[in-house]
């Protein structure tokens, strides 16, 4: 039986998620923002894998779904960014006024 790594793994997952959230809130470039969201999703995957050691296959199944969905999201997201880049010649969100309510 390997040593119990649940605590450290969860801590790492929480740190990764927080880095993702902070990056998504602070950075202004759409690509970087998207990478931060991907980081958040991977933090979630890490948490699922850690819990799945205790509870069985349910967590592993979810990890695969998350990866598939993230890939689909990337395909659509990059296409949307390309469409916008043709208009603006930039992906800087300062110029796009993203948070203007």
């Amino acid at each position: 039986m390997p040593p119990d790594l649940l605590g450290p793994t969860l801590a790492l997952s929480g740190i990764l998620f927080s880095i993702g959230v902070l990056g998504a809130l602070l950075r202004r470039n759409a690509i970087i923002l998207f990478m931060c969201v991907e980081l958040m999703l991977n933090a979630v995957n890490l948490a699922f894998v850690a819990f799945a050691r205790y509870y069985g296959f349910g967590g592993h199944v979810l990890v695969f779904f998350v990866m598939t969905v993230a890939a689909a999201e990337a395909a659509v997201g990059l296409a949307i960014m390309l469409a916008l880049f043709r208009h603006n010649q930039t992906l800087d969100l300062q110029d796009i006024n993203l948070l203007h309510g």
Binding site: V37, M40, M81, A83, L98
Partner: peptide
Amino acid sequence: ALKYFLVGAFASA
């Protein structure tokens, strides 16, 4: 679309 996409992906996470 970009705005909805970024916010939506953020919320999904």
